[in-house]
Design a protein around this nucleic acid. Structure first.
Length: 555
DNA sequence: ATAGGGTTAG
């Protein structure tokens, strides 16, 4: 009896700590002393396997057990639920009902499976069963139920569970799940309402509440609301813990308030990898690439795939092959298990830094390639003026069965543009909708018009732009620029008139182009006129500037 | 039971 209890206790510990080796030797010991016929021991062994994600041995135990009880089923169902197999978990739940009535923990596992597989039908069935068996006052069954409805986008049903009179004491967790669900379903005001009610009920929000409320994929609250929420978080000390602080950082960045985001980062006490990654990412978005690299050097957590992908992108944007190589070396030293995202970022970095050979080597050595990998390498060759290679890679990717997207075509068009291949560009453009069912966007049209214009095929370019239903500032800008290159005042004036009709322009370049066009033809009065237009339009023309990165090699 | 981060173009 003693042995039985102790063995069970140890196995439970192994399951919790995911201690594989110890658990396995306990299983061996159980066989050796002939305890594998004991239902309770078998349950413990099964549970150990299930919690560790070893679903095969767990299920084998399940099949071989002479007597199964509710705990057996519960452990098996929870294992499948825990390790991302919700459908199997639900099948088992159905089978189980022939033998046992579910208890609260089985209910909770099954409902969690419904939530992750977005199975509202099954959820409703379990809801009915829970009502029948009187489990709808147990808080964590009800919480799981709210989660199911929210994940399935049935917010009304979720909220009615929440306000159901039999559910007398919604806990903070219930509020958190409901608020998070409402925000996920874009019902921001409802979420905020519930947030207020929570206060009135005398509860205090925690990190989950704020994370749920602030986790909106877009900044919808308006800055003043965000500031108020930030204040609340400061009061409760939740701004300086990573869990909710990270979300706040992301939110500020959505308002492009990168310095604010960075301040939050600095105030977080124990920063986790994600805090560091978020800081690095948004330094990059704020165009402060060298700060991003400083953050990397200061980082005390272990960098992961996300870190390296972001930081390589910083190196790429600075076009600094020195820093890029430094990071690559670090990857080689600590690798080799870097995922496809990191490798894509490497290819991109070498491409942007002008090292096409290294870019291609990294690409060729990749075992797994995504659409982004192909797009990245095609862009690299396109930018280096190797249109044929870009096209060849496009063919190769189609042969393997990777479906191109609109970005692929943008890059192919840019490849043609960089190499002056007007006819090929037209073919690419035409094939988009005809062969691939992707309708060209305004940016594709710009690229093509630009390409035709540069090749001196102004009338063709104008034809394409006329197929547009309305005038577009950028497309017309391309045409104007082409007429400038070829000194065609007739086309230039016609386009300029259309541009002016669009109203005040956001960019100064069309005015400048037009005046340069006149200057080319020695029409100085017209130059003055177009310059005045620029001033009257209240458009600022910033002085152009160029910067280079100086790097000293020490040999 | 409840979260947060990346890599392609523009």
């Amino acid at each position: 009896m003693m042995v039985l209890q102790n063995l069970g206790f140890f196995l439970q510990h192994c399951a919790k700590a995911k201690a594989l080796r110890s658990g396995l030797s306990l299983h061996a010991a159980a066989i050796k002393i002939g305890l594998v016929a004991e239902t309770s021991i078998c349950n413990h062994i099964l549970n150990f396997y299930a919690k560790c994600g070893l679903l095969h041995p767990a299920h084998q135990m399940f099949d071989e057990m002479p007597h199964r009880n509710l705990v057996t089923w519960s452990a098996m169902i929870s294992g499948y639920n825990l390790w991302g197999r919700p459908h199997i978990a639900l099948q088992l739940f159905s089978k189980m009902q022939k033998h046992f009535k579910p208890n609260d923990s089985v209910f909770s596992s099954a409902l969690s499976s419904c939530a992750s597989s977005r199975d509202s039908n099954f959820g409703q069935q379990i809801h009915a069963l829970a009502l029948k068996l009187n489990y709808c006052s147990v808080s964590f069954v009800v919480n799981s139920l709210i989660l199911v409805y929210m994940k399935c986008g049935m917010c009304g049903d979720g909220l009615s569970v929440f306000t159901d009179s039999s559910f007398v004491h919604p806990t903070l967790v219930s509020y958190n799940i409901a608020i998070t669900g409402l925000v996920e379903n874009k019902l921001f005001e409802k979420g905020m309402e519930l947030f207020m009610i929570l206060f009135r009920r005398g509860l205090l929000p925690d990190r989950f509440t704020f994370a749920g409320l602030l986790g909106a994929s877009e900044a919808v609250y308006g800055l003043s609301t965000v500031l108020q929420l930030h204040c609340q978080m400061v009061k409760l000390g939740l701004d300086c813990i990573s869990f909710s602080g990270n979300v706040l950082m992301t939110l500020y960045s959505k308002f492009s308030l990168f310095p604010e985001s960075y301040k939050v980062f600095r105030s977080i006490g124990e920063k986790d990898v994600c805090s560091w990654n978020t800081a690095i990412t948004y330094c990059c978005h704020g165009d402060d690439h060298s700060k991003a690299l400083d953050v990397l050097r200061e980082m005390d957590a272990n960098p992961d795939d996300y870190t390296y992908a972001s930081v390589l992108s910083a190196a790429a944007n600075m076009a600094s092959v020195r820093i890029g190589k430094e990071i690559h070396c670090r990857l080689i030293r600590t690798g080799p298990e870097w995922d496809v995202g990191v490798r894509n970022a490497l290819v991109n970095m070498y491409g942007k830094c002008g090292n096409i050979t290294s870019a291609y080597t990294v690409f060729e050595r990749m075992e797994i390639r995504t659409l982004i990998s192909w797009n990245t390498i095609i862009a690299a060759f396109a930018n280096h003026g190797h249109a044929e290679k870009a096209m060849a890679l496009f063919d190769e990717m189609k042969t393997i069965g990777v479906e191109p997207d609109s970005i692929t075509f943008l890059e192919l068009l840019s490849a043609c543009s960089h190499s002056g291949l007007a006819d090929e560009g037209k073919m690419v453009f035409e094939s988009m909708s005809r062969v691939y069912g992707i309708s060209p966007g305004i940016e594709h049209l710009c690229c093509l018009v630009d390409l035709l214009g540069r090749s001196g095929r102004l009338s063709e370019a104008e034809e394409y732009s006329d197929k547009q239903l309305r005038d577009d500032e950028v497309v017309l800008g391309c045409l104007l620029s082409a007429s400038r290159v070829h000194g065609d005042v007739g086309v230039g004036e016609r386009i300029a008139k259309r541009l002016v009709r669009l109203g005040p322009l956001s960019a100064a370049s069309p005015y400048v182009l037009l005046s340069n066009l006149y200057a080319m033809n020695n029409n100085w009065d017209a130059v003055l006129r177009s310059r005045r237009l620029l001033r009257d339009g209240d458009v600022e023309k910033e002085a152009a500037r160029t910067s280079i990165y100086v790097c000293t090699l020490r040999i």
